[in-house]
């Protein structure tokens, strides 16, 4: 089935949730509301002539100052049997960045969701183990948000582990190597 047809099927089945269908370079993205994301995904997975059984990727995009629901959580779904790809984008507002975890349907979403939380600060409701994954646990801020500076926060707001290393380096610089040898 063509991706555009699948998108139309999805709109027929969930007229309330599907907001927009876009096509660019033969790839179709469907913008949906976040409320029933689990129903949408399980429909796409279970329907016998769609069978999107493979979650290729899960990530988010920050549209700071460009769109009103600030975040979009992006799902790339693929059917190994029918070889079609569909992109689902769920809108998540800034003031309440929460969306249902899709782990009950695709268990492979586990680390993708953790990374999404790590980088964007989006909470996944129902995730069993939502911790930071790539960054240290005591890191402050969410680096892939557009308002996070490229070089990170400097000075006092820098990561405590890095400040520790700097202090050790400073201390070692002061160390009197020659005196120590004589002793």
């Amino acid at each position: 089935m063509e991706p555009l047809q699948i998108a139309e099927r999805l709109r027929e089945r969930f007229p309330e949730d599907v907001r927009e269908i876009k096509e660019f370079r033969d790839q179709v993205s469907v913008i949906v509301k976040r409320d029933h994301i689990l129903d949408l995904l399980s429909f796409l997975k279970e329907e016998p002539d769609i069978q999107m059984d493979f979650l290729k990727d899960l990530t988010a995009v920050d549209w700071l100052g460009k769109k009103v629901p600030r975040f979009e959580v992006v799902y790339h779904l693929y059917s190994i049997k029918f070889r079609h790809l569909l992109r689902l984008k769920a809108e998540v507002p800034e003031e309440d960045p929460v969306i249902d975890s899709v782990m009950p349907i695709y268990i492979g979403a586990n680390w993708h969701e953790r990374e999404c939380f790590d980088m964007f600060g989006i909470q996944f409701r129902g995730h069993p183990d939502l911790r930071r994954i790539l960054l240290p646990e005591d890191w402050e801020g969410y680096p892939l948000r557009k308002d996070y500076p490229l070089e990170g926060y400097k000075g006092e707001k820098d990561w405590s582990g890095f400040r520790e290393v700097l202090q050790i380096a400073k201390r070692n610089k002061k160390f009197d190597w020659y005196g120590a040898q004589e002793r």
Partner: peptide
């Protein structure tokens, strides 16, 4: 626009998801 493009890297599927906002730099590259 936005594009997802994948290749078969030796380890498995290596995918690039690029969101472009019409400038010379990727708006988001996943």
């Amino acid at each position: 626009g936005e594009i997802y493009s994948a290749i078969e890297a030796p380890k498995g599927e290596l995918g690039f998801y690029i969101v472009s906002d019409g400038t010379g730099r990727p708006y988001r590259l996943r």
